[in-house]
Design a protein around this nucleic acid. Structure first.
Lengths: 222, 222
DNA sequence: TAGATTGTTAATCGATTAACAATC
DNA sequence: TAGATTGTTAATCGATTAACAATC
């Protein structure tokens, strides 16, 4: 085990490893090499070995990695071996989609409360969750040991909601609104902004052949 | 203007610049410095200047960047000065959320067709769009000059849908399903996988004080 | 002119990849 | 033993940041 800075790039690959390992387990694959894993995930095998080696010696020379064992280890690294409660604010379509997402099911990550500022939403339920008014946020966060907040409200309201989350004592925020949130340093924010993904995709569209051929860009295919 | 490789990191910041510049324009700000922009976006001013300088000399020494002009330029770089038609497969909650997203409105990026494999969905409409059966995909892509495909179906179906998109002649794919898609090199894929965002967020949660203090990680706050 | 700010070079920092001894 | 594959070091590659001359 090394005592080193772990870069965000490394951490963001761990869930990808985990997901694929779970698929392998389902297929009753017992062991996997960095070679094969790299192939499946379009990653360099050396990178995979290095990523994992930051956290421990999980593999066996000549053999590879034991699938079940590695799953356990990664879940531990990601803190998914304890239940992590999540609250979501914004009961629109996106919020509903996230609440119904089943990918967390075996991972102790659970959306346990949903809030909305719009009174008409309060009547409704998503999954098994009654939508609650914003006034209940702080109390609920405290009562239910909620550590992560998800924001799925329009851009203009996102900062306010973030402030409420911070005040309620949430430790991390996943923000789907297209704004840069300002929060204290002890609260970590990840922004999942699909319009960034989509717009940057447009950049890579081949130029339509009509005009001059431009070559001021090298497409970096990743 | 330089003839250089433009990294993906640079390209992914352009939409962020664009978005904020549009807000500035709305507030009738005429000019902005890399300094101020960096402050708002949590980015290093030198990085912003360098990013923009890849594409042209957009600023004025001593003054900064003309907001309207820079908006125009970035929209051009991202190819958003031409209409880009998009198709979406998967008319679930997430698909509906994306279709109703209004952030594209001034950007010529438009979802013009929605498909679903599930017959019951075909009856329904999202926004002004009748959901169509998968059989119509290829014809519609060709007829409507659709260049980008969005995938919002469950993981197990995503690769199939990607294959259909590729076959239909789509040039780029935005994939929301938690799988690594295999597509030919000429088709660019961006994956927007929020469970990766969420799981990696868990990693950064402070350890609850109960046990030993661990220091095998330096939190890289970004 | 003095102050501000760009575009760009050079320095730094960090991440990826190749290579290989260790070893199952 | 021979073949496979790890963990790790060294080499490479790339991205960020600092610094500053040019100039508005």
């Amino acid at each position: 085990m090394k005592t080193l800075k772990i870069s965000e790039a490394v951490v963001r690959r761990l869930p990808v490893y985990l997901r694929h390992l779970k698929e392998l387990k389902q297929s009753e694959v017992l062991t996997i090499s960095s070679q094969d894993l790299g192939q499946k995930l379009d990653l360099n095998p050396a990178q995979i070995r290095k990523d994992l080696a930051y956290f421990g010696d999980f593999g066996r020379k000549g053999i590879g990695y034991d699938v079940s064992y590695l799953i356990e280890q990664i879940r531990h690294i990601l803190k998914l071996d304890q239940q992590i409660n999540v609250a979501l604010v914004g009961a629109g379509k996106l919020g509903q989609a996230l609440c119904n997402y089943s990918g967390f099911l075996n991972d102790n990550m659970k959306i346990v409360a949903v809030f909305d500022a719009f009174p008409a939403k309060i009547e409704t339920a998503i999954r098994d969750l009654q939508v609650q008014p914003m006034e209940d946020l702080k109390e609920s966060v405290e009562a239910n040991n909620i550590r992560i907040g998800i924001i799925t409200v329009p851009a203009l309201e996102a900062q306010q909601v973030a402030d409420r989350f911070v005040e309620a004592g949430v430790e991390a925020i996943l923000n789907f609104a297209p704004v840069i949130l300002k929060v204290p340093a002890h609260v970590r924010v990840h922004t999942a902004d699909f319009s960034t993904d989509l717009f940057s995709l447009a950049y890579y569209l081949p130029n339509e052949g009509k005009d001059v051929v431009t070559n001021d860009t090298t497409i970096d295919h990743t």
